[in-house]
Structures are given as C-alpha cells and as structure tokens.
C-alpha cells in the first residue's frame, strides 16, 4: 500500500446530534414482506450495557445483492439501500427493522456486516452477524472455520420471535470476534 492510512479516533460521547438520523434503523418500513427485527445489546468488559455506542449494519438484500441505490439518509420507504445506523439506548440496546440478507455467493453463509463505535472505544470495530439455520453453509464458511470452535458462536445471531438477536461484547467472557482486513 502506497499511502499510510489516516488513523481512527473514538466517536466520543457527543455524536448523537450528528450521526443518528430519522429512519436510520428502519431499512424497510412496517408491512414490508419479509421484515425482520435485528437487535441486541452492546456490553463492556464488566458485562455492563453500553448506552453510548453506535451500531451500523451493511447488508445484501433478500436476494443476495449489494444495493447500489442512494437514499439511506432520506429513505423513500420503497428503496432498499442496505445500510442502517442505530445508537444504543439507555439499556445498551440497538434495534433495526430490515430483511434477512441473502447469500452473495451461491451456497455461502449469509451475514450482516456490523460496525461498532462507542465512547471509550478508540477505533471502530468490524464484525459479522451470520444468520443462523443454514448449518451446511456455516460449517463451510472460511471465516468461521478459521476460528476456535468456542468463539464461532459470538458471530452467529440467535433466532427469536420476530427475527434475530445479536449481542456485541467488546471485552471479556464471550468477547465478540472483531475483524482485521489486512491494512489497518
């Protein structure tokens, strides 16, 4: 790489007037076919929920395509843009309404790309939230296979009544696997 990257810095405590936006966590509107709830809690190393974190998701549509459509910041209610942003609430919870992503490559495991920011977290963290259920694809997934078995489950969302739960643990027991892509 020819140019060294600009380092990251913490999002700090004062991002709420700037980054979250109206409709940010609603990738699809109520009543949309296949609408699901993706939600969870962000925890620190003491198991305490983090009320000043920000979670972003970036995902394929239900058919496994990456959206090239604009409009994530001003949603029209019809166009699926694949991007969502949600600040955690007072209980450390975040919540998105979206659709389950399809696998981008045939027979690959489908996942949400997840980016986490928080006061106290000096640089953003990237991870994946895999959809549960397709055991054959999960068992063959190159990233999951490269992990010790006891850590794989930190990347697999759990089904619930309306969708999936994906908790994020920044540190300690059950620490989420965070990713590095070779250049930072």
């Amino acid at each position: 790489m020819k140019y060294p990257p600009t380092p990251g810095q913490t999002v700090g405590p004062f991002f709420h007037d700037a980054l979250p936006y109206f409709g940010g966590s609603d990738l699809v509107p109520p009543g949309h076919p296949g609408r699901i709830h993706l939600h969870g809690t962000v925890f620190d190393g003491a198991g305490t929920p983090i009320p000043d974190a920000l979670v972003e998701i970036w995902q394929a549509d239900a058919g496994g395509s990456a959206s090239r459509a604009t409009g994530s910041l001003r949603r029209d209610g019809f166009t699926f843009t694949g991007f969502g942003r949600a600040a955690t609430d007072g209980t450390g919870g975040y919540s998105f309404s979206t659709v389950a992503p399809g696998p981008i490559a045939p027979a690959s495991a489908a996942f949400f790309s997840v980016c986490v920011f928080a006061r106290g977290l000096l640089d953003r963290l990237l991870t994946r939230a895999y959809l549960p259920g397709d055991d054959a694809s999960l068992a063959a997934d190159p990233l999951l296979v490269s992990l010790p078995p006891e850590r794989r489950s930190t990347l697999i969302a759990a089904p619930d009544a309306h969708g999936f739960v994906f908790d994020i643990r920044l540190q300690g027991e059950g620490e989420t696997v965070f990713l590095w892509h070779g250049s930072r």
Binding site: A60, A66, R68, T70, G71, S72, S113, P142, L170, F178
Partner: peptide
Amino acid sequence: SLLRHPTKDLHHADPEGIELWAPVFGERD
C-alpha cells in the same frame, strides 16, 4: 477505554461478499 477494548487480537479475515461493497450516498441524501 479500560473496559471497552477487545482483549483478543483482531482476527484476520479476507473481506467477502457485502464487505467488498459500500453504501452509496447521493444528492438525494
């Protein structure tokens, strides 16, 4: 940062699928 940093090394992964794309923003946004 004391309780808010991962203690395990970041895990190296080749970007795949959706990670190879980024959201698109435009004049509409």
